[in-house]
Every structure is written in C-alpha cells, then in structure tokens.
Amino acid sequence: MTDLLTHLRRTRLLAILRGVPPQHVPKLIETLLGAGIELFEVALSDDLGLPGLRAARAAFGPALPLGAGTVVTPLLAWQAHQAGATFLVTPHLVPEVNAYAREQGLGLLSGAFSPGEINAAYQQGSAAVKVFPAGVLGPEYFRQLRGPYPHLPLLAVGGVDASNIRAYLDAGAVGAGIGGALTRTDWNNPDWAALGRTAADIRAQAGEPR
C-alpha cells in the first residue's frame, strides 16, 4: 500500500465519515471514490464507528486506504486494527495510541494544536500532523508554522470545506480532512447525487491528484 504521507501529498484529501449508518458506508465511499476522493477515515466517536469500519473493509477489501478516527485509547486502537484499519487518527496527542501504531506498523495521523504538541506528534511517528481544529486557527496559523517547522507535514482538519480548502493548501498544509461537508444528508433517505456533487466540488478546489 502507498505510504500514508505520499498518499496525502498526492491526493490532498481525507474523507472523514462520522455518524454514518454502517449500511450506508459502502455506498458513501463508492460515491466519494467516484468524485475522486481516495483516502477515508471512519470516526469511532459513536456506536456506528466500528461496524462502519468493518462494513467498509468487507466491501472494498485490503486495497482501500482506510483509517479509524477519534482513537483515544489503546483499546480503541486495537479494536480499530482488528476491524481493518490501516491507519489511526487521534483528535489530540495520545502517546499510548501513537506507540501502538508504531508497534503494529500502522499509519498514524496524530492530532495536535500548539507548536509543542505538533512537534511531539511528529516525533511520535505521525505521518502528517493533524492540526485540529483548523477552522478556529485559520490558514494563517499554518503559514506561520512553516517558518520554524518547514519539514513538518500538516493536515488541516475541522471546519474545512470547498470554500476554504484552497487557502489552507496555499498556506502550506499538505492536505485536509473533511467530515461534515461530505456527509451532510438525511441518512433515512440519502441524497447520493448531492453528496457526489459536493465531493466533486471539494475535489476541484483541492486540485487533481498529483
């Protein structure tokens, strides 16, 4: 499988599936793939997460780059690994989860906020550091970080959508994680066409994969 950082640099987008009913996860991923999005994270912040992760892995097999998000304990890290995750994503710095990812050879996108946390996340093995919540910090925060930390790959997550993704990329982020903008629909009657159009718009704003 392509190295996680290489994949992020090439595609620039990570789709975050949070609160998606497991029976709809395969169709949503198929819709996003059709719009050119290739990297996926299923958030484990509710009871839908682990079943959704299993549904995605069962539907697409081992080739799909598939992460588990909101991994805040070693137990969740283990459960995500067993469910088929190939990389782990944390909302903040969780050294125990980061250590598990290293030990198991999993990819890692560790969350961080301050410069000290960002550097620690990178030192603990994060392929790219998930700077969260990006919407509060704004693109200028990323631009300022490029001065002292030009070597640190930064992923903008939280509050990123088609209207501002270009600004984060231009400020030096290697990519962006996008959740609500890609999953906002009535899950009792999903509008797949609308979801596909939104995904294609975000893909266009990010630019084609390199």
Rank of each mutant, 00 (worst) to 15 (best):
R184D: 15
R184Q: 15
L182G: 09
T183M: 07
A127V: 02
D201F: 02
G147R: 05
D161R: 08
E96H: 02
P91K: 04
G179S: 15
E41D: 10
V94C: 07
A56T: 09
T31Y: 12
R166L: 14
Q123Y: 01
V25L: 08
G179H: 12
T73S: 14
R143P: 08
A206S: 11
L17Y: 05
P139F: 01
L32C: 12
F87C: 05
A56K: 13
A176Y: 01
Y149G: 02
H81S: 14
L39H: 14
I178E: 00
Q104K: 12
A204I: 01
G158P: 05
A156I: 04
N189K: 14
G158T: 03
P115C: 08
D170Y: 07
L155H: 04
Y141L: 10
R102G: 06
P74V: 02
A121Q: 01
K27D: 15
P115D: 07
H7M: 14
E96I: 02
P51S: 13
I37S: 00
V97G: 04
W192T: 03
V174R: 06
P74L: 08
K27C: 08
E208N: 09
D170C: 06
P21H: 01
I178Q: 00
G175D: 05
A200G: 11
G207Y: 10
A35R: 11
P22G: 09
T183G: 11
G196Y: 09
V71D: 01
V89S: 07
S114H: 03
Y122H: 15
F60T: 02
Y141D: 06
P26R: 08
Q144V: 12
R184A: 15
P150A: 12
V97T: 02
S114A: 07
A206P: 05
G179A: 15
V71T: 07
H24Q: 11
